[in-house]
Design a protein around this nucleic acid. Sequence first.
DNA 1: TAATTTGAAGTGGTAGTACCAGTTCAAAAG
DNA 2: CTTTTGAACTGGTACTACCACTTCAAATTA
Lengths: 259, 259
Amino acid sequence: MVVPVQKDRKHTTSLSSSLARRIEQLILDGTLKSGKPMPSERQLSERLGVSRNILREALKELRGRGVIDTQHGRGSIVKGLVPNLEQGSALTHLFREHPRTLYDLLEVRELLEGRAAYLAADRGTEEDFHRITHAFEAMEQAGQESTDPLKAAKLDHAFHQTISEASHNPVLVHTLQSLMELMLNSVLASVNNLYHREASKKKIDRHHRQIYNAVMSRQADWAQKAATAHIRNVRERLLEIEQEEQRLDRSSDWERLLQ
Amino acid sequence: MVVPVQKDRKHTTSLSSSLARRIEQLILDGTLKSGKPMPSERQLSERLGVSRNILREALKELRGRGVIDTQHGRGSIVKGLVPNLEQGSALTHLFREHPRTLYDLLEVRELLEGRAAYLAADRGTEEDFHRITHAFEAMEQAGQESTDPLKAAKLDHAFHQTISEASHNPVLVHTLQSLMELMLNSVLASVNNLYHREASKKKIDRHHRQIYNAVMSRQADWAQKAATAHIRNVRERLLEIEQEEQRLDRSSDWERLLQ
DNA sequence: TAATTTGAAGTGGTAGTACCAGTTCAAAAG
DNA sequence: CTTTTGAACTGGTACTACCACTTCAAATTA
């Protein structure tokens, strides 16, 4: 009697499903950037070596999970692997009601940004570095031309994000992004204060240059130190501003009492 | 000039998606009974008046949502319409399909746990310390009495959580908790492996004692080092286990070839 | 007869082609 | 310079042919 061949797997994980995973992997690797458009179905199917039908089934799976967004005639864009984690719930409320937690957030961010910069210097690819350079130059240029604080904040955010993405750690990227969204959505105003002060702005620019140079020259330890110092500086500046505002509040209280 | 017909909707809800809904409706109506097999793809595509490709895309959507279960050569059966809302399905999926990201998570957790331990030793109150002691003793006691890995993992988690709470940084607490939930919900199995190995368990216990002693004696730097080393050890152990399993897989491949 | 083997017919899975339907953008027409 | 047009993208749908797996009854064998 012939011994029956051991049945390998119950679910031979249909090609389309494994394709979906391969594409997710491409997003993890950074080959497909979130927010950027994907190659067309015909290109993808050819590059991945599968028929367009099966490629479409894989995309359907990703689309159903919210990983990509597709529009007829235009194409598909990557929306990110983690559509909506715990956004809007507990932390957002906490943040709005207790602005002091901003400093707790910056305490965490200091850790994560430092690590991200370290890993970016260590693992970043040439393509990552191009992106970082692009973001950095856009930030510097805008800093000299315009004085729009909102634009500056966005470019600042973009710069830090490209660095975190160069770390190739999706958990790190996602965690940092969540924290940044919290900051930008709830306490943008106070952050903007930083850009109104020439001294603060100079220091921030200097820190950014240090981070940039350290990462680009692959000096991981230096990059980590620079990024950590940067965030710590931001936190201390915000604390100073808060104290000033409190002094102003007190003086206005006095004025009110004297009326 | 001819007035163009007003375009109805931006998203004309692609035929495949509306097909998925029609099929769900058939399940609701009772035409397709849950638990029973569905008609073959060829029959369905003809009866619903669509091509088999597009019918397959619709099925893919249902399959991805867990509404139906499909097996090659047999057919598809209806599993019911219960959404089965396991929380965090997005990141949870990411971990199930891309186990490597577990190490990315542990990389972040190493940072955060280290900082949490540092801050706990630095800022923890007497009440915090009582809680930590309580959790620590419960963990040690259970470690000697029972061998239930699930219980051990929960007590382990509880211990780390009391420490993070003693940091008095709500952002840190919340971020760590999110990451832990991810681990417990998606890769609990592999984590449990650690508790099955006597050597690993001994080392984990030793690390826990070090963390505990450092925090209780308010030696912040020591606490941070111990916590960091602890998580790093967990990551390395998991890597070893993974490599062992790969070796086992390879050997079973050999056996299959030799038959 | 009873156990085994075989193979046709069913199933889902994959590939390829052709065509339809929106979108874009630059060249051509006004 | 503004408007119109249309080629060249994009995704959406259809159809066909074939492959891989499963089932099960008929044919073969012991």
